[in-house]
Amino acid sequence: MEIKRIENLSNEDWLQLGSFGYKSTQKYELTKEETQGSFSMHLTLTNLDNIYEKEELNSTDDLKRYEEIIKMGFSYGLYISGSLIALALVEPQHWNNTMMIWHFQVNEKYIRKGYGRLLINKVNEIAKENGFRAITLETQNTNVPAIHFYMQCGYQIEGIDVSLYTNNDSHNEEIALYMRKKID
């Protein structure tokens, strides 16, 4: 097992990572109250009647953007026997002295075996070595396995965007959760 900086990603690398997506039997349901004198948002973990399944595909624009992020020198991969099995694409955000994880993926055959934690710990270490004050990432309220993983790694929910994916949150559809780990 080796964690090393990613210099480039081939189509074969993406294939080795497998499909990108998740399944969840729960979601964090959002309720919000807004009056002239106050505003509050509350997330409650709820069980779903059916498994929520999402498979994401990287568009050509995504892949071009990832290539630019990789050139910045903060993206890492975890390799077993020369095969890429986990990936963290990370962009420095110099304007606020943070790092942004744009894409974090572990091949489904290697999930819940500690490899994701090893990789996220490497990202945390790189952030600290380079003097960044925090690491930020975005996930969805429906991706409860990822939320719980990031929480176990010291990340906290610090932001909610109810219209990142759709302009209609009246049915409490998928919403964006921003999580952050402050670096000491």
Results as ranks from 00 to 15, higher is better:
64 K>H: 10
65 R>G: 14
67 E>Y: 03
67 E>M: 12
68 E>N: 08
68 E>Q: 08
69 I>E: 05
69 I>R: 00
70 I>E: 04
70 I>R: 04
71 K>L: 13
73 G>P: 05
73 G>N: 09
73 G>Q: 07
74 F>C: 04
75 S>P: 03
75 S>T: 03
75 S>M: 04
76 Y>L: 06
76 Y>G: 09
80 I>T: 03
80 I>S: 08
80 I>P: 00
81 S>P: 00
83 S>C: 12
84 L>N: 03
85 I>V: 15
88 A>D: 05
89 L>G: 04
89 L>C: 11
89 L>H: 01
90 V>S: 01
90 V>R: 00
90 V>K: 03
91 E>I: 15
92 P>A: 14
93 Q>R: 14
93 Q>K: 12
94 H>P: 09
94 H>N: 11
96 N>I: 10
96 N>Q: 13
98 T>L: 07
99 M>W: 04
100 M>Y: 14
100 M>I: 11
101 I>M: 02
102 W>Q: 13
103 H>I: 11
104 F>T: 08
106 V>W: 03
109 K>Y: 12
110 Y>L: 08
111 I>F: 05
113 K>V: 02
116 G>R: 07
118 L>G: 02
119 L>Y: 06
120 I>F: 00
120 I>D: 02
120 I>V: 12
121 N>A: 11
121 N>T: 06
122 K>Q: 14
123 V>D: 01
123 V>Y: 05
124 N>E: 05
124 N>S: 10
125 E>M: 06
126 I>C: 03
129 E>S: 09
130 N>L: 09
135 I>E: 04
137 L>D: 00
138 E>C: 08
140 Q>M: 15
145 P>V: 10
145 P>K: 02
145 P>N: 04
147 I>Y: 05
149 F>R: 02
149 F>H: 04
150 Y>C: 09
150 Y>I: 10
152 Q>M: 09
153 C>K: 00
154 G>A: 10
154 G>P: 04
155 Y>R: 01
155 Y>I: 00
157 I>G: 03
159 G>L: 09
160 I>F: 13
162 V>D: 12
163 S>A: 15
163 S>P: 04
166 T>L: 06
166 T>V: 07
166 T>E: 11
166 T>H: 13
167 N>I: 12
167 N>A: 14
168 N>F: 07
169 D>F: 14
169 D>C: 12
170 S>T: 13
173 E>P: 08
173 E>W: 06
174 E>W: 05
175 I>R: 07
176 A>C: 10
176 A>L: 08
177 L>Q: 11
178 Y>V: 06
180 R>N: 11
181 K>L: 13
182 K>Q: 12
